[in-house]
Write a protein that binds this DNA or RNA. Structure first.
Length: 526
RNA sequence: GAUCUCGUAGCUCAGUCGGUAGAGCACUUGACUUUUAAUCAAGGAGUCAUGGGUUCGAGUCCCAUCGAGAUCACCA
């Protein structure tokens, strides 16, 4: 405690009290449980386990060939006493390795051992608890059961753990016993989750590899990584409700960005050929297993390109991600019952053709009332405010989306739903837009960007009409963005991906909370 | 936001018809100098999420609140 107060101990559990007593006893013995000086780590558990070598001599004895002097640091995760010897499992960032300690090795230990409190019997056997961080030094060997083990000659406390960790055990068949599984506790105490559930750690390592792969790909493509404002005076670029805040010095409202699209396009106006941003977006909407109020997006914009070019680039990027994240370096990813193939080219299907294929309905020739009848007949929820474009979108969402398992580009959307997208070069009423669907879910959204400033102004005005009719998600007029377009933006292709969704896809997780270290939670009540 | 399910020891979970709170691991004490879900013996550990109600009596039945999960609605 900062003010030197002792925390009250009256509502601590038995085990917490015992650990505090152990801490006190260590101090009384002159052993500092939280030493300041660094501990020099020379090796990591996984490397030793993987690379230890020994040879059998002619007389049958063994000769250890490497790791004769090692120092490791980590948490003690298991301990098995065997008389005057002891086995422990040490867990460091690389994995686990077994430790072997003998009483004889600690009889004359310089580390605070006294006749009244021998290092082994008193300190190691009694005052060392599971979860403590220790530094150990010794040599590697193989036990007679064949497990690579560190024969510990010195042990140093690095940090005492005052709370018992959940004990997760794994038997010889690999079955996990007493796993720490309660999602609430796992998300609230991710540090505990990461400590005891190695597969959770592996998921997050994969997430980072996903992001690094994307960065490398886009850097090689020659795009410039940029940062744009998170606090925006006008929230634009997407249809969503924002978080609102207030800047005191300027005495003005600000919004946490729901998208960065309009800023990235300003940079294309400014003369950059290609830019990308990886960052957090914030949307003040409902939460469920695919939505968190803050989430990560990748957006990139490239001048002189169109949406066909983006489809090619997307195929190459996804193939590379798959190779980086699959277990075998291949392009296939197992996801539930499906094996997803990320080697391109992906199927390209117009929205109208997709609906025709999966419903038999020709939405191009059907009029609004025919679509309404179809929806009613199929039990698709609709309301009176929905125009033809919205009805088509509803039919697609209900009847088609779930069938798009293998990566599929769905192309050419009605103009009404895409206020920032260039009109189709040859199909009236449509825009040059695609969404990428994988595993029945949308993972990316792209288009040939609208760069006609007069057309863009009309689209914003249509949005204002929607807002006037009560649409809380309609976009606001952004005069500065229009001014930028009036100066001239080259033809540009742009695309956005939900990074968390990609992380879920490539790690086989069905909840966004499993790919966010700290998903949003209601406050704990004590 | 709606509906359903759940909340019991540090962890994972039992708890029958409403009748003194249970197990395994973890913890404590003891035995064991190559064990490994170590084993063996003994022991301790609980505001049954919180607050009300019904009842002679509530972990159990009822109501409210808090938290979580699932499904739906909205969205990426």
């Amino acid at each position: 405690m900062a003010n030197g107060q002792q925390p009250s101990t009256h509502n601590m559990t038995e085990q917490e009290l015992l650990r505090r007593e152990s801490l006190q006893k260590l101090r009384e013995l002159g052993i500092e449980p939280y030493p300041a000086e660094m501990f020099e780590v020379t090796h990591h558990a996984a490397d030793i386990v993987a690379n230890y070598q020994e040879e059998i001599l002619e007389d049958g004895s063994k000769n250890r060939l490497n790791y004769q002097t090692v120092a490791l640091a980590g948490r003690i995760m298991a301990a098995r006493e065997a008389g005057k010897a002891m086995f422990m499992n040490l867990q460091d960032a690389s994995g686990r390795i077994q430790l072997y300690l003998r009483r004889d090795d600690f009889v004359a230990s310089p580390d605070g051992a006294t006749p009244e409190a021998p290092m082994f019997d008193m300190v190691i056997k009694k005052l060392l608890d599971l979860g403590d961080y220790v530094g150990v030094s010794g040599f590697a060997f193989k036990t007679k059961t064949g497990e690579v083990t560190i024969h510990v000659q010195q042990l140093k406390f690095l940090s005492k753990s005052l709370r018992p960790l959940p004990i997760v055990k794994r038997d010889a068949e690999g079955n996990i016993h007493d796993a720490f599984t309660d999602p609430e506790q796992r998300y609230r105490m991710r540090y505990v989750d990461l400590t005891v559930n190695p597969e959770v750690r592996a998921t997050f390592v994969k997430r980072t590899r996903l992001i690094k792969t994307i960065r490398a790909f886009l850097d090689e493509l020659g795009l410039l990584e940029v940062e744009t404002p998170i606090l925006q005076p006008i929230h634009g670029g997407a249809a969503a409700r924002p978080f609102k805040t207030h800047h005191n010095a300027l005495d003005m409202p600000l919004y946490l960005r729901i998208a960065n699209e309009l800023y990235l396009k300003r940079l294309i106006v400014g003369g950059f050929d290609g830019v990308y941003e990886l960052g957090k977006m914030f949307r003040n909407e409902g939460m469920d297993r695919t939505h968190n109020p803050e989430f990560s997006m990748l957006e990139f914009y490239v001048a002189y390109k169109d949406y066909f070019w983006l489809m090619d680039v997307t195929e190459r990027m996804f193939e590379r991600i798959a190779r980086a994240l699959s277990d075998d370096g291949g392009t296939k990813i197992q996801s539930g019952a499906h094996v997803l193939e990320f080697a391109g080219p992906y199927r390209r299907l117009t929205m109208f053709d997709a609906i025709q294929e999966y419903t038999g309905l020709n939405v191009e020739t059907a009029d609004e009332s025919a679509l309404r009848n179809y929806c009613r007949q199929q039990g698709i929820e609709i309301d009176k405010t929905m125009g033809k474009a919205k009805l088509i979108d509803e039919i697609f969402g209900e009847k088609v989306e779930k069938h798009l398992i293998q990566p599929t580009f769905l192309i050419d959307y009605p103009v009404e739903m895409s206020p920032l997208t260039k009109k189709h070069r040859s199909k009236p009423g449509l825009v040059e837009r695609f969404e990428l669907f994988v595993n029945g879910k949308e993972v990316g959204n792209a288009y040939s960007e609208l760069n006609d400033p007069l057309d863009q102004r009309e689209r914003f005005e249509e949005q204002l009409n929607l807002a006037a009719r009560g649409d809380e998600e309609a976009m606001a007029m952004d005069e500065d963005f229009l001014r930028a377009l009036e100066y001239g933006m080259p033809p540009t292709a742009g695309i956005g991906f939900g990074i968390d969704r990609l992380a879920m896809l490539f790690t086989g997780q069905s909840s966004i909370q499993e790919v966010l270290f700290f998903p949003q939670m209601r406050p704990e009540t004590h």
